[in-house]
Write a protein that binds this DNA or RNA. Structure first.
Length: 554
RNA sequence: UGGGGCGUGGCCAAGCGGUAAGGCACCGGAUUUUGAUUCCGGCAUUCCCAGGUUCGAUCCCUGGCGCCCCAGCCA
């Protein structure tokens, strides 16, 4: 153990695996990530597949990527491509093990027939409505279907006709014969196959009956030799059923283990809601930088390492937990701080004129790309008598703790001189439109000769050389910690989650290319939008702000 | 009120009978031409509550209380 990697904190799944390996119950670790291709992956999925791939990696096993495509009416190819790209983006590799539940449709059909022959499954011809009624409630047992005791031959014949397409959707269904009085609703003769005359993205029109999740998932795991089938808590009640099918079929038995799904404050995670945000145009698409989707985060500028680190940090448990968004943001800053080149950009410009600096002089200052990493080199930054600073860095009547610019106050221009504000120019409305300052020309790269301290440092840009670019300021999509707490989660939408400003940036930034991330000093991290930027005309997305203790003081 | 789970500091989370890891947040202080970063230091006599077993319990037992999930021909 000579690596500098932080120690991985253990979790209950790791403990189970370690024990199984030690006792000989298992001799290898095979996991799988089983997304349904009916939407884009979000940060919650990242927690799941980081866990699955991470476990496989740590125990020298492997992790499969298997699409759970048993419901043709909701699934599309567009999503299977995107999902693979997302998983790869995070750096995981399933090798040869790309699978689809639909790869097993033939086998599943045979197994269904096997169960019918064993008297463990039957064709029910009740309507969905009748089935629902007869299922009982949480406190009342269910009632056997009048079709429950059909002869095996009849079941076989009916199921065959279902397969052939002789019946319309919804007229018959294959159910497992278990126990209508079970306190576990999942065991009250669960559906195995339904009739769906729908085109499947992979099997086309070959089938008009499709297996239910419960009759496909465990078997897929079994076929692939998955040893640990890790899923979320809501499937805990399905485990007895998962085990029942495996046992009745007499096939290899994987172990299902459930963990708590991720809840992130100020965001929603349900696919239904994310889809609605997209279709109702509350966001610009699945890859809107405000979306908790992986494509959204990528476009926002979140490095994959930040997401992995986040998944590592939050741990794995069985209690419903809420992680604060700030934890994710902190992971993003942690990564970006190390590598992002520093630049100067003014988002809300206020003109500053230097009284004592020659109007025709332009200095090319050498400034570091990263103060802590000299290896990252330096760049030239033009300085002249006319600059722009951020309006937030000037106050006409500053409070005691404000150590930026104000009338008669001194401040250091980042990477340049110390200046003093000598005159405040206002327009007819009384708004400050310009500051006249004097520069101490003997303070470039050094402190004032008389030794007095200047605490404030502000960023700036030289007026003549500055370039105007579009900057998109993104903030949390929702105002409330838990948007679901609102009557309608859409009411919790943050109207200020997206603002566009025209910023003035140092000239070199025009050459920035899609996906590049910079730190605009004292402001935040910004990434060149990969979708709408043009060559020589970058659009910057605010990835995350810098921590701002002054903002907290205010 | 049937069944399945969960309850460790503000938020996560280790611990699995031997006297409360770690991260984030927070509070101090140092360094700093980013009020950033970095660096030091602080931060649960206590593990939902009440009993019990034990020399000793967050860990075992009993009883409460609280929270989450389940009645799709979705996954």
């Amino acid at each position: 153990m000579s690596t500098s990697e932080p120690p991985v904190t253990s979790n209950f799944i790791r403990t189970i695996i370690t024990e199984d390996l030690a006792s000989g119950k298992r001799n290898q670790v095979i996991t799988r990530f089983p997304p349904e291709p009916n939407g884009y992956l979000h940060i919650g999925h990242a927690k799941s597949f980081s866990l699955n791939f991470g476990l496989a990696e740590d125990f020298g096993g492997r992790c499969h990527l298997r699409f759970d495509d048993t419901n043709p009416v909701k699934e599309e190819d567009e999503y299977v491509e995107a999902i693979q790209a997302d998983v790869r983006w995070l750096g995981f590799d399933w090798g040869e093990h790309l699978h689809f539940a639909s790869d097993y449709f033939d086998q599943l059909y045979l197994w269904a027939v096997q169960l019918i022959k064993a008297g463990k499954a039957y064709v029910d011809s009740q309507t969905a409505e009748q089935m629902r009624k007869n299922r009982g409630t949480l406190t009342e047992v269910g009632i056997d279907s009048p079709f429950r005791n059909r002869r095996i031959e009849e079941n076989l014949e009916l199921f065959d006709k279902m397969k052939k397409g002789d019946f319309p959707d919804g007229t018959h269904i294959l159910r497992a014969k278990i126990d209508m009085s079970s306190p576990n609703m999942n065991l009250r003769d669960p559906a195995m196959y339904r009739i769906l005359h729908a085109h499947h993205h992979r099997t086309g029109d070959k089938w008009c009956i499709y297996p239910m999740y419960d009759f496909a998932h465990g078997q897929g795991d079994s076929i692939e030799g998955v040893t640990y089938s890790i899923c979320t808590l809501e499937f805990e009640d399905h485990r007895p059923l998962y085990d029942w099918f495996i046992r009745e079929l007499g096939i290899f038995a994987p172990q299902q283990i459930e963990f708590a799904r991720l809840n992130l404050s100020y965001t929603v995670m349900s696919k239904r809601k994310l889809l609605q945000l997209v279709t109702d145009n509350h966001v610009s698409g699945w890859d809107d930088p405000r979306m908790p989707t992986l494509v959204g985060m990528r476009r926002r500028g979140y490095p994959p390492a930040a997401i992995r680190s986040f998944c590592e940090r939050i741990g794995v448990g069985k209690g419903a937990s809420w992680i604060d968004l700030s934890v994710l943001e902190e992971c993003v800053r942690e990564q970006l701080n190390k590598s992002a080149l520093r630049r100067q950009a003014v988002l809300n410009p206020l003109k500053v004129t230097m009284n004592n600096y020659p109007a025709d002089k332009i200095e090319e200052l050498d400034v570091p790309n990263h103060p802590q990493q000299p290896d990252l080199g330096t760049r030239k930054l033009p300085f002249s008598h006319e600059l722009y600073i951020d309006r937030d860095d000037f106050m006409e009547d500053p409070p005691k703790k404000f150590f930026r610019l104000g009338p008669d106050r001194e401040v250091r221009l980042r990477n340049a001189y110390i200046i003093k504000c000598e005159e405040v120019i206002k327009d007819t409305n009384g708004e400050v439109v310009e500051l006249r300052c004097s520069a101490d020309l003997d303070t470039l790269g050094k402190n004032p000769a008389d030794g007095h301290k200047v605490k404030g440092i502000i960023h700036w840009v030289s007026a003549a050389q500055a370039e105007k670019v579009e900057v998109r300021l993104y903030d949390r999509l929702f105002n409330q910690e838990n948007p679901d707490k609102a009557d309608n989660y859409l009411d919790a939408l943050n109207p200020e989650s997206y603002k566009v400003v025209s910023a003035l940036v140092e000239p070199g930034l025009l050459e920035a290319t899609a996906g590049e991330t910079f730190q605009f000093e004292r402001v935040g991290y910004f990434t060149v939008d990969s979708k709408e930027s043009q060559p020589g005309k970058p659009i910057f997305n605010r990835t995350v702000t810098l921590r701002d203790t002054w903002a907290k003081l205010k």
